[in-house]
Design a binder for these strands. Structure first.
Length: 569
DNA sequence: GCCGTTTTCGGCCCGACTGTTTTCAGTCG
């Protein structure tokens, strides 16, 4: 059973408890537990079966440990099932409506007996809601307006889409002479894989001009809220954006607050409290006196912390690193010297070997590996042994007439459903670099998926496991990979792990890339470029590596080709 | 429900905006 499944049990339980009006700290305990579970690389299923002590995990106490044990060993979850009996599933859907939270849902269910979004819509249309105590005409109208969007609520957009929109708005606001500073914040600044909404922060003595400017921006569909310092809008794409305007002296504090994550900020504020200080979006205060706030560095310093890179602000290991004085110097795009996964017209790429090499060179890369598909991927015109050997000759020809970049003869070789490789060993042995991947049969049971991955890892010619789960973010679940076993085997067999930089892949994800580092496994960040523009996604891969806390030294393709070759088997 | 190098009980971050209210609750991030 995947960790995410267990975590979703606790998230659902927390939602149901909220509707029941349970102790908010008990609810938070369940949510904290869920967060810990999703950010643990090790499989909880494995931990239970090997009788490890789950309460060693932060936020998992005796009761949650017992419930995890129950879920894993029996497949049941009595606490959750009891609550679900009391509250029909359709009631939970109401939580997705903007402006409707657990308290209101509780009233709808308990006082009006509404059990679904459809019930609620009828109740609004017939004016039943406005008759309730604490409700009025405006609430009714607002619900009617938002109810059809409820299905879309909670949908997240890729980091690429999020950044494109947020950065366009930032650039536009920057043009205003009144605006002093403006920046993207929130999960987009933390470079999460997906964003649920967008956050933009500006400093300006008068919030009017930036708010007016945003409201008139072509990407903006409607203004949802507008107050003295905060404006919320919905973009035409459906995603919502918050603009916060604060005075210059509060910019750092507001950036810190507005970048989050919520969990990270709770720790920062708790630490401030322990020092008899208060942190809010306006600054760090001792009593009435503001002692920091202009820059983020000041804010962190005031609570005894080094500046923490936004990518690490998830309340995972950043405070531990800060306390130990071991905040990692995160890898940057400029550190990358090589790209070890790309395609050409020989399979499904849009550019020739030469065009790809020239484009890579123009981007400052020192070496690349040409890794077209193997034959199993017939729809991508994958290569058999004969075509592949000819292709490599073509690579040599290009190399012979090109200087300033080294080109490796590689292959993206499929790991077939029966756990054999798509090309014979003698062919793989001739390659400079073999990237082994799953493309087909991703829905096979975990046991078979692992048989395939373990076969690839123990193949003497495989150098890298590429996009190891095969997921497509928001569209397709990845394979059921047991990372505890995979990473151990990769470390034992000197196989590297890829972070695929394409914004719809990004696996290894941050959690497992961090675990790979713990195993001493070199990570490669590869673009999987299918055209000369395909190299542009590199930064998304680097961002994922940064979220994993990786330094340049942890990333194999920051090294010179000579040093990189030493990492190969 | 979790947690503890002052604690095994008594805490658990903080503020903006809205709609419904005369002082605040609910929602959101």
């Amino acid at each position: 059973m995947k960790n995410d499944v267990i975590a979703s049990h606790f998230e659902l339980l927390a939602d149901l408890l909220e509707i029941q009006g349970a102790n908010p700290f008990r609810i938070r305990a369940y949510r904290n537990g869920a967060r810990t579970i999703t950010s643990t690389s090790e499989s909880l299923d494995e931990m239970v079966r090997s009788e490890k002590d789950l309460t060693e995990l932060t936020g998992i106490g005796k009761d949650l440990a017992r419930q995890i044990h129950e879920i894993v060993t029996t497949g049941k979850h009595v606490a959750l099932e009891e609550l679900r009996k009391a509250i029909p599933g359709g009631v939970l859907d109401m939580l997705r409506i903007q402006g409707v939270g657990p308290k209101k849902v509780s009233v709808f269910f308990n006082e009006l007996g509404l059990k679904s979004l459809a019930d609620l819509k009828v109740a609004c249309e017939t004016g039943q809601l406005a008759k309730l105590k604490g409700f009025g005409k405006k609430t009714e109208e607002s619900i009617l307006q938002n109810i059809d969007l409820a299905a879309k609520q909670g949908e997240r957009v890729s980091i690429a889409e999020a950044r494109a929109a947020a950065e366009a708005i930032v650039e536009d606001l920057r043009k205003l002479p009144e605006v002093e500073q403006v920046s993207v914040a929130g999960s987009c600044r933390r470079r999460r894989e997906t964003c649920g909404d967008l956050d933009v922060l500006a400093t300006c003595s008068d919030p009017g001009p930036p708010m007016d400017r945003l409201a008139a921006h072509p990407l903006v569909e409607t203004v949802l809220q507008r107050g003295d310092t905060k404006q919320r809008v919905r973009l035409r794409t459906g995603i919502e954006l918050d603009l916060r305007v604060v005075p210059e002296a509060s910019f750092g504090a507001a950036m810190q607050y507005f970048t989050g994550s919520k969990e990270h900020n709770i720790v920062v504020r708790q630490r401030a409290k322990d020092l008899n200080l208060k942190v809010n979006e306006y600054g760090v205060f001792r009593g009435e006196e503001q002692i920091a706030g202009r820059t983020e560095e000041d804010v962190y310093a005031a609570v005894g912390l080094p500046w923490i890179p936004p990518e690490l602000r998830e309340h995972r290991r950043e405070f531990e690193w800060a306390d130990a004085g071991k905040m990692p110097m995160l890898v940057t795009v400029n550190d990358i010297q090589g790209d070890l996964h790309m395609h050409t017209t020989a399979s499904d790429g849009a550019a020739t070997i030469e065009e790809m090499a020239l484009a890579a060179k123009a981007r400052g890369l020192k070496y690349i590996a040409i890794t077209d598909h193997s034959k199993r991927v017939s729809m991508a015109n994958g290569l058999d042994a004969v075509r592949l050997r000819q292709h490599w000759k073509d690579v040599w020809d290009v190399q012979a007439r090109m200087s300033g970049i080294d080109i490796l003869c590689g292959i993206e070789c499929d790991i077939l459903e029966d756990a054999t490789m798509d090309l014979p060993d003698d062919v793989l042995a001739e390659a400079d670099l073999v990237v082994a991947v799953l493309h087909y049969g991703l829905k096979q049971p975990g046991v078979q998926i692992m048989k395939r991955l373990m076969a690839a890892v123990s193949n003497p010619h495989v150098d890298i496991i590429g996009h190891c789960t095969g997921r497509m973010i928001g569209r397709r679940e990845g394979a059921d990979v047991n990372f505890t076993d995979l990473l151990k085997a990769a470390a034992d067999n000197r196989v590297m792990m890829e972070i695929n930089a394409h914004p719809s892949r990004l696996d290894l994800d941050d959690i497992h890339a961090a675990a790979a580092k713990d195993h001493g496994i070199p990570i490669v960040i590869s673009t999987d470029a299918h055209s000369v523009n395909g190299f542009e996604v590199l930064e998304y891969g680097v961002d994922q590596a940064r979220r994993a806390g990786l330094t340049a030294d942890d990333v194999a393709n920051t090294k010179s080709l000579k040093e990189f070759r030493r990492l190969l088997k």
